[in-house]
């Protein structure tokens, strides 16, 4: 449709490797407008407006501090508890939001998708970018907390690994996107997966070093800690904490592993997604 001389062919089959990225680029304005739509419609007719973005991580941090920190007494590697939890929650939320929202993208947009064509990849991409805005706002909250503890002289330090922050964000986004797209493609036919996702993401959080440091897990459950280590989100969260707070199991190997898995999921996700988008209207 947008090739040179405007010739097009619509056929039953298409090549697996055609990722249609050129088409996505042609529709980049739509991406921007969809992100704007999500953001604007989120706080229209609310009193607190964008402040709502703060409330969820704030309260989760408070509750985690009480339950896991004080009541259960799980180690936080010597870091101030709220700081430790908020670091984990902020990063995890971004990944989890990308994953859950992307995984229902076909179902949520069945109406639009059934009536007009645009590169479907735009939708999951816009979700990732919208959530990035939200993540950015929550990062401000986190940084405010960091600044507070810094000036009250708590024991933590910012390390050089903070320079990896952009890489981590991209990894989280792409991992959520890739996994979400694989699931979304399958939910068009098998709805059960949609239930599994909400539930699964919660469970996955406990298999990621969000509420405990990786070092404690290895120390206490050496037989099972491989599950946590194999989880590609673990190195990402650990690196995040190591960068901002100076504690965490950072290694290039683990980060490399996470990057590899992310790329694999992403490419697999796009391929499956592109394959399903052609006929999903008939089955959803």
């Amino acid at each position: 449709m947008l090739k040179d001389n405007h010739s097009w062919t619509i056929e039953a089959k298409s090549s697996l490797i055609d990722l249609k990225l050129r088409e996505v680029w042609a529709y980049r304005d739509l991406l921007g407008l969809l992100v704007r739509r999500d953001f604007v419609s989120f706080y229209k007719q609310t009193i607190l407006g964008p402040l709502w973005f703060f409330i969820q991580p704030l309260f989760t941090t408070i509750i985690f501090t009480f339950i896991f920190g004080n009541l259960a007494g799980i180690s936080t590697d010597g870091l101030p508890k709220p700081l430790f939890y908020m670091a984990g929650i902020t990063a995890w939320n971004y990944f989890a939001d990308c994953l859950t929202k992307t995984s229902t993208v076909f179902k949520d947009n069945a109406n639009i998708f059934g009536k007009v064509y645009f590169p479907r990849l735009i939708m999951p991409l816009s979700i990732v970018v919208s959530n990035l805005v939200r993540f950015g706002v929550q990062m401000i909250l986190f940084l405010m907390l960091v600044a507070y503890y810094y000036f009250t002289g708590a024991s933590f330090q910012i390390t050089w690994a903070i320079a990896l922050f952009p890489v981590i964000v991209v990894l989280m986004a792409l991992l959520g996107l890739g996994t979400g797209m694989i699931i979304s493609a399958m939910t068009t036919k098998y709805r059960d997966l949609a239930f599994l996702v909400t539930f699964g993401v919660q469970l996955l959080m406990y298999a990621t070093s969000v509420i405990y440091p990786l070092s404690t897990a290895i120390e206490k459950y050496p037989a099972y800690s491989w599950i946590i280590e194999f989880n590609p989100m673990t190195p990402i969260i650990e690196t995040f904490r190591y960068g901002f707070l100076g504690e965490g199991a950072f290694s290039w190997g683990a980060l490399g592993y996470a990057t590899g898995i992310t790329m694999l999921f992403l490419i697999l996700g796009i391929v499956i997604f592109n394959k399903v988008e052609k006929t999903f209207v008939d089955t959803v």
């Binding site: 001389n5 010739s7 619509i10 056929e11 039953a12 064509y117 052609k278 006929t279």
Partner: peptide, 21 residues
């Protein structure tokens, strides 16, 4: 099919020009 909302099962359809549907 022409609007590319769904793909055909068999055969093909081709043409020139941008489609507004």
């Amino acid at each position: 099919i022409l609007s590319k909302v769904t793909a055909p099962t068999t055969g093909k359809i081709s043409g020139h020009g941008r489609i507004a549907s």
